[in-house]
Design a protein around this nucleic acid. Structure first.
Length: 453
RNA sequence: UCCUGAGUAGCUCAGCGGUAGAGCGGGUGGCUGUUAACCACUAGGUCGUAGGUUCGAUCCCUACCUCAGGAGCCA
């Protein structure tokens, strides 16, 4: 593989006769030379290439505009001017691919909204190049976090017939012709199938065999959600631990977030600096505090009390037994705690059948981890491991016993206490980059009415 | 899906009941080891779409489309 800018810029000393390839970010002309700002996406920084007017290739300069791809031979020398440590003194420049005046990316700033309309070109910008380098680093850090603790990576199915109750609307998967009357038994799988909304149920089967497992893969929700933090296709991380209760579940979730914040700060310093300067001026502070301050935990009941005593008038009334509204969660995370906070033990009436009933008979061992600015980043629970209580809850919520027969089997044969959670990968990325719209941390975002590219 | 706001040049925006303007980007010329370079000139727009009101609509009204922000749903 040829050298990348990242490798070259790490050099301690001048280098002679190197070759670099990349894209022209901008070009400036002087009397005796031309300056190209070259980037290749391998790192945040670019390199200034100096082309002397006496070079035969200088005639190419009129065609080398912003966006063009070039290959440059030259020497890496200490830059005599302010602004950069190194520069590349060109000996030969080859124009690989022209980009004319219609190239949409200019030297000046673009809005994220406009860049969304050119999703195929936006990774060439500082912002999106940074986001997607971070995305790669974070994905790897997710695996490292679990692998270091002996978790097994389980590939749960993308196509599934089980609805993880409460997770939302599902996309139907079928080979039946549209409009033709047909029974589900005639479909490809002989039953109705969907794109997964969660790997949890299958994850439980593996946890109840291999101990600690996690999934990390695409997840699909057909909800007509139009918000800055929902997507129809996103990636979710779902650990599931056998012999684990809610306390240990919450502890792992907190450590998980911390580990990834730490990875961001140590592995992506250039990107962090950029985000802090141009995206969110509080980002570095917030991430540092996340590492320094222990996460708070508040029970749902205490959270309701706290909201009632806050003296705040909320648009939605605070009532025990109702779900916490966004404004309530924001108040708790952003004003009361001013940092990440886990709310646990929710009323059982608002939570799905698989969550473990607490001894009070009113609540279940559920938890949500909230972070300032985004809200829920993790949702999890201890699972109901007691056969009678599980089937009772299923009946109450009107679920078809046959569909969940295999799931109930996990309680019928060698049942153990177990717990897990789901972490939204994109929401985590929003948290560590400061980027406020989920569409801007997904390479090609799928949202209602939008699947171009 | 609901509420609010916005759609004017490639981009960011200004404007106004009498058929459009700036900055950046493009082109041309000049200047300069330049740093979102600078200076001058120049090209570029059925003012989101469809109706309506009016002598006349980019501007006012209606519907629709798209986008953004907020809400619900959740990761």
């Amino acid at each position: 593989m040829p050298d990348t800018l990242r490798q070259i810029l790490a050099s301690e000393s001048a280098l002679s006769s190197i070759t670099l390839r990349g894209w022209v970010r901008t070009r400036r002309d002087s009397k005796a030379c031309s300056f190209i700002e070259l980037t290749d996406g391998s790192c945040f920084k670019g390199l200034q290439v100096v082309i002397d007017a006496s070079l035969p290739c200088y005639s190419l300069m009129s065609k080398i505009l912003t966006g063009a791809s070039v290959e440059v031979d030259g020497d890496l020398i200490a830059s005599p001017a302010q602004g950069q440590k190194w520069e590349l003194q060109a000996k030969e420049v080859r124009l690989l691919g022209e980009a004319d005046g219609t190239y949409p990316l200019q030297k000046k700033g673009h809005t994220p909204e406009f860049l969304r309309t050119i999703a195929h070109l936006r990774p060439r910008t500082n912002l999106f190049g940074s986001v997607f380098r971070v995305r790669s680093k974070m994905a790897f850090a997710v695996h490292r976090f679990f692998q270091e603790q002996g978790f097994f990576y389980a590939h749960t199915p993308i196509i599934t017939s089980s609805d993880c109750e409460g997770a939302g609307e599902m996309f139907r998967v079928t080979t039946l012709k549209q409009g033709a009357p047909a029974k589900p038994e005639e479909d490809f799988f002989g039953r109705p199938t969907y794109l997964t909304v969660s790997g949890q149920l299958q994850g439980e089967a593996f946890a109840c065999a291999m101990g600690n497992i996690y999934t990390f893969g695409p997840t699909f929700r057909a909800e007509n959600s139009n918000t800055a933090r929902h997507a129809a296709e996103f990636w979710m991380i779902e650990p599931e631990m056998a012999f684990c209760d809610l306390q240990a579940d919450m502890t792992l979730a907190e450590e998980n977030v911390r580990y990834l914040v730490k990875a961001m700060m140590t592995e992506c310093p250039d990107e962090l600096e950029f985000f802090n300067k141009f995206v969110d001026k509080e980002l570095t502070n917030r991430l540092q505090q996340t590492l320094d301050k222990p996460f708070e935990r508040i029970s749902y009941t205490d959270a309701v009390d706290l909201l009632l005593k806050s003296g705040r008038s909320f648009e939605h009334p605070v009532v025990w037994g109702e779900g916490l509204q966004t404004e309530h969660e924001r108040y708790i995370a952003e004003e009361h705690v001013k940092g990440p906070v886990t709310i646990y033990n929710y009323p059982k009436s608002i939570k799905p059948f698989y969550m473990r009933q607490n001894d009070d008979g009113k609540t279940v061992a559920a938890m949500d981890l909230l972070v300032p600015g985004i809200g829920e980043i993790i949702g999890g629970s201890q699972r109901e491991e007691r056969l009678d209580l599980l089937t009772e809850a299923m009946a109450k919520q009107g679920l078809d016993e046959e569909t969940y027969r295999w799931y109930v089997d996990l309680r019928r044969y060698g049942s153990v206490p177990h717990a897990g959670y789901g972490m939204g990968f994109e929401r985590l990325l929003m948290f560590v980059t400061g980027v406020s719209n989920i569409r801007d941390v997904i390479p090609f975002a799928r949202t209602p009415g939008n699947a171009a590219y």
